[in-house]
């Protein structure tokens, strides 16, 4: 990869200031960014590491809400949420492999919004809120399409907040080479409703399957999903790993599995 200037600020404030440099990029673990830079698909002149910012690390349970610092690794989330939110701990523990989980962070994952990433689905299903250096954005407004988010130039994801549901499960059908989801579904049942978030399927990135949410809100049972029509696969991702129609089929199958396991 091309050389760059490197900065490792210790506070959010310093990081924001450092990112004002021309062609600067935030670095939050680098498990996607580094391979991207090696391929020269990203050529930042300056890399601002967020990994030294202590106020962006850790997991805190505040009532029925979980606060996860943006620079918190998947391994830490897996460990810290094992008892308070096991479905999210399971999601974190199935991202990539142990080495990726040692370095990769939740902030990096949601900011990148890969259309096949795990955290966008978990965050959207958990009524998440993305906290940045300047505002709080509900997950519904934050994820705006493939690799697209509400983030402005130089804005940093400092934390992710989620509501802990009564029951939840993340059902993931992996693409065996990349081990990213080919299609995966996070189902979260709250006292006043159900959320179903799908990743890996849509050209528009993570989305909520509203028909399934309605059906499951009246009857939280895999049979309620079975009665629904398969979602329209016309606009879903079609590649050598699976057609849009196949992914649409998987959306329904994985939703049923998630409900059954929740």
């Amino acid at each position: 990869m091309y050389d760059f200037d490197y900065d490792r600020p210790g506070t959010i404030q310093d990081a924001v200031a450092s990112l004002k440099a021309e062609e600067a990029i935030a670095f939050s673990g680098g498990q996607t960014l580094m391979p991207t830079m090696k391929q020269r698909l990203a050529m930042p002149s300056k890399v601002v590491s967020l990994m030294g910012i202590e106020e962006m690390k850790g997991v805190r349970l505040e009532g029925s809400e979980v606060w996860i610092g943006g620079a918190t690794t998947h391994a830490t989330v897996q460990r810290e949420l094992a008892e308070s939110y096991p479905a999210m701990a399971s999601l974190a523990g199935r991202i990539g492999d142990p080495s990726v989980r040692s370095r990769g962070t939740i902030g990096g994952s949601v900011a990148n919004n890969d259309p096949s990433a795990c955290y966008p689905a978990g965050t959207l299903a958990s009524r998440g809120v993305i906290v940045t250096d300047r505002r709080e954005v509900p997950a519904d407004e934050f994820f705006q399409g493939m690799f697209m988010t509400a983030l402005e130039e130089g804005e940093i994801v400092t934390a992710v907040k989620m509501q802990v549901p009564e029951r939840a499960h993340y059902a993931k059908f992996i693409q065996p080479a990349s081990r990213f989801p080919l299609t995966a579904v996070f189902v979260a049942k709250f006292a006043d409703g159900v959320r179903v978030a799908v990743t890996g399927a849509s050209e528009m990135g993570v989305f909520r399957w509203h028909e399934a949410e309605e059906a499951l809100s009246s009857s939280f049972d895999a049979g309620a999903v079975e009665a629904l029509a398969t979602p329209d696969g016309t606009d879903m991702i079609s590649d050598l790993h699976g057609s849009g129609a196949y992914r649409a089929h998987l959306v329904k199958v994985m939703t049923k599995r998630a409900v059954a396991a929740a």
Partner: peptide
């Protein structure tokens, strides 16, 4: 290229030396 960094496994081809 797996090594241990502060006790955790990492792929050292995907960690910057400065990190």
């Amino acid at each position: 290229c797996t090594i241990h960094m502060d006790g955790a496994p990492v792929k050292s081809c995907s960690v910057l030396a400065v990190e």
